[in-house]
Design a protein around this nucleic acid. Structure first.
Lengths: 344, 344
DNA sequence: CGCAGTCTTGACAGCGCTGACAACGGGTGT
DNA sequence: ACACCCGTTGTCAGCGCTGTCAAGACTGCG
């Protein structure tokens, strides 16, 4: 098959045009564009004027062919939640626009065997070089992926990683503290019998939320059992987990779901079982994703600044000149809506 | 700010390596890669063997610098629904991978003034050339955007356009028929008093769904009023529209929302008003998006193959060699869940 | 005043590929 | 046998930019 697309570009100004207009050499224009040192203010001004006048935009293809950068960063994800992914994408995209970079998006299925994961990665890398990658959970904590990238000498930054935080730049929230916050909130409303809906096995942040929740309850003196059921961050998983939790006797009065999707599922389980939310059982989610507002009653949840986290992560990847790993922690907050009430 | 990212690529095989190994000229390798005619089977085989042996992958930057193609297509969207956008993206992305193309994503805000829309487009085009663009609603029916692209001689294809279908390749479903299908379904369940939640003003497909629905009801002999309230395809719009519709007396028994998001909002309005779904009022959505399954009761809705539509659209853009506009219509189907019942 | 040392600027090759064009070779018609 | 044609293969310049290296401009100091 011969895929032929041909385009007649409007003739763009080239670096040569700029150089001629500014009366300087090609290389000087290049220096200005790349913010290189050792350029006099006068020369820079001349060149910038010419660039503006000609509405010059550097040609990415030529830049990457001649130089060692590609001006592309890749976003690797393996998260089924469209909501989460879109927010991440939008944050990373914003950083790219700000830095005249391009964004490449690739989905990886990390649930398969190591060999297959490796094959997917190789294919992506072969297919187009990138200056760096952004990893989202659960890829952030996949040793295989990290090792592979490092072995190839490819830079990357991580969003909300769990392990080995100093291995590469990353941005996260204190998931443990967030879980604890939910615990305090529910405990202070009088709840004493709790259920937790956990996330995917390999999702570090989900574990930290759960650990923070449990740890805070224990610290506050709760000594009864705390039920747990796996929700896998999916709506359907939330339904199943909700059913399991509903079966307990005496019945629990509050559920902490480690993300909103599974919280929504749990609410459906309650409805089906004839249990009212929040009258009989309170439900608290995590993410403040789009579903939180579209269920009824609206979901009380923890807001985390996903878009901003993604943006910061991308900036780390783009800005850095040195090697030192950095780490940024952003704030979360409780979003009180209608799915949590005082214990019955 | 000096954004310095440098990467040491593992030394890749180049076309020259392939040519040497195969014992042919550079140009012959190029011919094979680009599927050009006038290449003997023997030569092609030799080259392909060498390519496999060396694991050669053509360098995109060099290709676009030397040739007239960029190997990038752009996806332009202005749709707030993460669900819809993700599906479109995934379909287009698949087509790109199949054709060794890259995908560029750009968001446009088309609700602002014409001048600003034009400015956004110019910025996108200046920033990086593309071999073509994919448009999603409501951009598909924005005269300004279409004119602009055509004036610049840029190819594009449309997903679910409303007007001037022969202007460019497109893929769509028969929204009118889909609306009619919903009308028949509800009418046959005994419903006679209807409310419609309409979409954004400038969204052609939303109008067609509404028109098909109304037209079918009239054809079946319904002569009472059919209420309409604007939902703007948003969850919050759906709540507002739901409230308006609930105020009617005698109360309507069925609501057709032109997308799932607004249907979910309408369901919340019902709950708040103490009206049960589907006991008192039936609600039918459109899209079979993710929310359809995460509300309670689960939403009866119309499935449209968004991912597939996007994929086909991208293939049209990539495959075509001629100029003739083409058009593909795909199937939709009713997804029966729990939000619709017989009229009370 | 001259010279080393530093800052600033420029000349030029070449990144990996494609497009235009040339050259080759083998079949056809006369 | 010769001219002609067409399918096939090759040669080479150059796309727009950056890295290397060298030259020029300036500074301070003996």
């Amino acid at each position: 098959m011969n895929n032929t697309i041909r385009q007649h570009h409007a003739p763009h100004a080239t670096m040569e045009d700029v150089a001629r207009l500014a009366g300087v050499s090609l290389k000087s224009v290049s220096r200005v564009i790349n913010n290189e040192p050792h350029v006099s203010a006068k020369l820079r001004a001349k060149v910038e004027a010419a660039i503006t006048e000609l509405d010059y935009v550097p040609d990415m293809a030529a830049r990457s062919l001649a130089g060692s950068r590609t001006f592309i960063i890749g976003l690797l994800f393996d998260n089924p939640s469209p909501n989460y992914t879109m927010k991440v994408q939008s944050g990373v995209y914003r950083a790219c626009v700000e830095h005249q970079y391009h964004l490449r998006i690739d989905q990886i299925d990390s649930s398969c065997s190591d060999d297959l994961v490796q094959a997917q990665l190789s294919a992506i890398l072969r297919n187009s070089r990138c200056d760096g990658f952004i990893l989202t959970p659960p890829l952030t904590d996949n040793q295989l992926v990290l090792d592979f990238l490092e072995k190839q000498g490819i830079r990357y930054a991580r969003i909300a990683p769990d392990i080995q935080l100093d291995r590469a730049p990353c941005v996260l929230i204190d998931d443990f503290a967030a879980g604890a916050m939910v615990a305090h909130y529910l405990f202070n409303l009088g709840h004493r019998r709790f259920g937790i809906i956990t996330g995917p096995d390999h999702h570090g942040a989900a574990h930290r939320r759960r650990d923070g929740f449990v740890s805070a309850l224990r610290t506050m003196g709760l000594d009864g059992p705390i039920l747990e059921a796996p929700g896998g961050f999916a709506f359907s998983g939330g339904i199943a987990a909700g059913q399991v939790l509903m079966d307990a006797s005496p019945r629990i009065t509050a559920i902490f779901a480690t993300n909103d999707d599974s919280a929504a599922g749990a609410m459906v389980s309650c409805m089906r079982a004839g249990v009212t939310v929040p009258g009989d059982v309170s439900v608290c989610g995590f993410d403040d994703s789009w579903v939180a507002e579209s269920v009824w009653p609206a979901l009380t949840t923890v807001y985390q600044p996903i878009e901003e986290m993604a943006h910061r992560t991308a900036l780390m990847l783009l800005d850095r000149t040195g090697q030192a790993a950095t780490q940024t922690t952003l704030d979360f907050r409780l979003i009180v809506r209608d799915s949590v009430a005082a214990a019955p």
